[in-house]
Structure formats: C-alpha cells, structure tokens
C-alpha cells in the first residue's frame, strides 16, 4: 500500500533521471550532432595557427570570437534543449513528470545529464583545443571555463525548455540579442551572461588571455566561476517552479 508523504529532493533519483536523459535525449543522430561543436572547437584551435601573433594571444582571440562566442553557446543550446525542451515538444516528458519524484529532482537530473553531455562534448574538446593551438598551459583553463560556462548555459536552456515550447527560438534570442547585443554594450548585462563570464574565467587563468579578454566591470577567475554557479542556481530554481506550472498537452501542443 502506498503511503502519502511529502516528496523530497532525492539524489538517487537525480542519477536515475540523468542516466535516462543521457540515453533517451541523445539518440545516435543527436550524438553525431554533438560531434560538430567538438569538431568546431578543434577547427578554431587550428585557426589560431594562422593568426600572426604569439600562440597564447592568437588562442585568446580565437577563444573570444569562436570558442566562447559560437561553439559554447551553440553546443549548450543543442544539449540544454535536448534534455528538456525537446521532450516537452515531442510529448515524452510525461514518462518522467508522472512520477512521485519532486520537480527539483527532475530538473536536477535533467541538468546533470546536460552538464555531463557538455563536459564530454565541449569541455574536453576545449581542453584539446588548447593543445592543438600549441598552448599547453591553456588546456585546463579552457576546460574549466567551458565546464563552468556549460553549467550555466545548460541551466538557462533547461529553463527555456520549461518556460516555452519554442525553447530553441528563445534560447537563440537569449544568445544573440541578450548576450551578443546587450551584453556587448552593457557590462551589467554581461555580468549575468554565461558566455561573458566563461570568457572571464579564461581571461584570468588562460596564458596571456587577460590582454585580449579582460573587460572592465566583469568579475574574473574564481569570481566568474561563482557568478556562473549563481546563474546556474537561479535558472534551475526558476525551472523547478516552472515545471510545476507546465502544461504537458502532448506533441500537438493543444
């Protein structure tokens, strides 16, 4: 006989949900798709070789425009949408939603799956990109910046998946209009942008990166990591609230 009790955050179920999401949300085609950002990271690293500057500075330029400007947000968008938004649209989220697991457990499980996928598809290739660019000292800083940035990006895109069925459009709008447009113009916006904060992590720890990536008014290094963790937490908390208000009306959407 089932007994009624208040459901709590359950770390065991977080792992169960993350394991399911890694399998169900990343079928073979999407896994192949995730190889593209990884390949992009390596291509950008190769591009650093043709920039007429020292290797660390060339890599910092490539990281600014390519790695953190394109590869990280696009890769995280695909991953973050896959773990929640795509399931809402396809009508399969009910397999998870219809369970005694708390919304916090579900969101944490989905985010964990996305974060793990991002570590494999982005953080590792970013580290390798440092090596390919001929800057071994950039391996760890790039991987750290990608990992911390991915954590925040995936959380934000999970939130969009919970907020709207058009999660991809809104996510793109967030990156292009919010981060690239407003974030470039306004430091106040950039301080809460995963992309700018990920740059700021690398600006502090990357070899000769500060000269290229330093931006006034943006906390760097460990402070940027903390800021990214804050963004992650806030996005996940809102996603938890939103999951309880989601209308899962199936693939038709009506």
């Amino acid at each position: 006989m089932k007994t009624r009790s208040r459901v709590r955050f359950d770390p065991r179920l977080v792992v169960v949900i993350a394991g399911y999401a890694l399998k169900a949300c990343f079928p073979t085609k999407r896994r192949i798709g995730l190889a593209l950002p990884a390949a992009g990271a390596l291509l950008f690293a190769l591009l650093a070789h043709v920039i007429p500057d020292s290797a660390p500075i060339a890599l910092a330029h490539v990281a600014d425009g390519g790695l953190f400007g394109v590869v990280l947000p696009v890769g995280c968008l695909v991953i973050g949408d896959a773990v929640l938004g795509a399931e809402v649209r396809s009508g399969t989220l009910h397999f998870t939603w219809l369970s005694p697991a708390s919304f916090a457990t579900i969101v944490a499980g989905r985010w964990l799956a996305g974060f793990l996928a991002a570590l494999a598809a982005l953080a590792v290739p970013f580290g390798v990109a440092g090596l390919v660019a001929g800057v071994p000292g950039a391996i760890f800083p790039l991987a750290l910046a990608a990992a911390a940035g991915s954590a925040a990006y995936v959380a934000v895109f999970v939130l969009f998946g919970a907020l709207t069925r058009r999660a991809v459009v809104w996510s793109l709008g967030f990156v292009v209009l919010g981060e690239r447009l407003l974030g470039t113009a306004l430091s106040g916006v950039a301080q809460w942008s995963p992309g700018w904060e990920a740059r700021a992590v690398y600006a502090r720890y990357g070899p000769s990166a500060a000269g290229v990536l330093h931006r006034k008014g943006i906390p760097e290094g460990g402070s940027a990591v903390v800021r990214l963790l804050l963004i992650t937490a806030v996005a996940l908390v809102v996603a938890v609230w939103r999951l309880g208000h989601l209308r899962l009306s199936g693939p038709s959407g009506d």
Partner: peptide
C-alpha cells in the same frame, strides 16, 4: 501533490516514445 503521481499510470494516445530506448529500459526507468 506529487505523491498522488504514485497512484497514476498513463498510456497516452500519441505515438511518441523516447528515441533510442528499448521497452525494457523504459519499463526499468519507470
């Protein structure tokens, strides 16, 4: 009340199933 979900089983009309999963994996997940 999330505990109520422990009492409910649903078979929706739409065909959607999690891609790449086997029936055993889905049942074990549930």
């Amino acid at each position: 009340e999330r505990t109520v979900q422990g009492h409910i089983g649903l078979v929706p009309e739409d065909e959607a199933v999690p891609g790449g999963l086997t029936p055993r994996e889905l049942a074990r997940y549930r």
